[in-house]
């Protein structure tokens, strides 16, 4: 059994049941974030797709796979966005190597 169930995304508004004011504040904010602004809705959808992969949220991955298609993105654009997420995640791991080296150097003769 998977801990993730595809139908759960549709139940997302149900989180309001136990903390309605916080949920309303979040969903209002969420809606505002994705409106056209300095960035287009299309650009925001590609960012969301990349972040969805970085945080490894299966709900968000499916939702923004569809949204980016509905914003007219090609599969090549989608995959390049995933590579951006991968590069930042990978880079973030590697750059910690500097910290590792510094501490290892401190401990070493």
């Amino acid at each position: 059994m998977s801990h993730y169930e595809a139908g759960d995304l549709a139940k997302f508004p149900g989180i309001a049941k136990d903390a309605p004011e916080l949920a309303k504040a979040f969903f209002d904010y969420y809606g505002k974030v994705f409106e056209e602004g300095a960035l287009t809705a299309r650009e925001k959808a590609l960012i969301a797709l990349a972040v969805a992969h970085a945080v490894q949220c299966p709900y968000c991955i499916e939702a923004y796979a569809a949204t980016t298609l509905e914003q007219g993105c090609s599969k090549a654009e989608q995959m390049e966005a995933v590579h951006v997420a991968c590069a930042i995640r990978g880079g973030a791991t590697l750059v910690h190597g500097v910290q590792m080296q510094r501490h290892a150097d401190k401990l070493s003769m």
């Binding site: 287009t40 809705a41 299309r42 569809a66 298609l69 509905e70 914003q71 007219g72």
Partner: peptide, 17 residues
């Protein structure tokens, strides 16, 4: 027309692209 099971993009921004 979309090349799959999804809705088309906003017409004005798609035209610009």
């Amino acid at each position: 027309n979309p090349s799959g099971a999804f809705l088309p993009p906003p017409q004005s921004s798609a035209e610009a692209r």
